[in-house]
């Protein structure tokens, strides 16, 4: 049924605005930690309940496909001022949840792709995704041990990133470091406006 045309109460509320920033990258790279470091609330955890629509081709054929599963979604919040919030969403790690990325990415200010130099290939899918959709992103190289021994130029080459895309060395446990990543992203995104 379609009630959209006569729906009561769908007028735009212009006074409040929530802006999405996505935190992407491979499993265990520090996405949730990053959200937790900067969020003013404990990262909220919600689950998206999926019907069979969300399950990919990995279902065994011949088996009843009506599986229900959940995908966890962690997010944090930064209040810029009354009525203006930043929401940081840690994107689901598994590739089969791409459709959720689409929803998360729609209208997003931009994304941080977290990279672990020991497993750089883990962030290829995220880099491809944001490049293809023209969503502004920066790459944050998470230096777990605090040692700044990674060469951003090598990371750029390995990921095939254009010169314009910022690469930031960071420690997602450090507030100032996460602030630096986010301000880099916003500065980069505003250039495209």
């Amino acid at each position: 049924m379609d009630y959209a045309a006569s729906e009561p109460g769908t007028t735009a509320v212009a006074s409040a605005l929530a802006i999405k920033i996505l935190i992407a990258g491979g499993f265990g790279v520090g996405k949730t930690t990053m959200v937790g470091t900067i969020s003013e609330i404990r990262p909220l955890h919600t689950e998206e309940l999926l019907s069979e629509r969300g399950i990919g081709v990995d279902d065994t054929s011949g088996v009843e496909a009506k599986v229900t599963t959940t995908v966890a979604l962690d997010f944090g919040r930064i209040t810029i001022r009354q009525g203006l919030w930043l929401y940081l969403f840690g994107t689901p790690g598994q590739d089969r949840f791409w459709f959720m990325w689409d929803e998360l990415a729609l209208g997003a200010l931009g994304a941080v792709v977290l990279a672990d130099t020991r497993r750089l290939q883990d962030c290829f899918p995220a880099v491809d995704y944001f490049e293809q959709r023209g969503i502004p992103f920066v790459v944050g190289v998470n230096c777990f041990d605090g040692a700044r021994r990674y060469d951003p130029a090598k990371v750029r080459r390995a990921l095939g990133l254009s010169e314009t895309i910022p690469i930031v060395l960071c420690d997602v446990r450090e507030r100032e470091s996460v602030k630096n990543v986010l301000t880099t992203l916003v500065t980069y995104a505003v250039e495209g406006v």
């Binding site: 605005l17 802006i19 930064i78 209040t79 810029i80 001022r81 203006l84 930043l86 200010l109 602030k179 986010l182 301000t183 916003v186 500065t187 995104a189 505003v190 406006v193």
Partner: peptide
């Protein structure tokens, strides 16, 4: 808005 967000961060 971008400026406000940057300033806020």
């Amino acid at each position: 808005i971008y400026r406000e967000v940057l300033h806020g961060l």
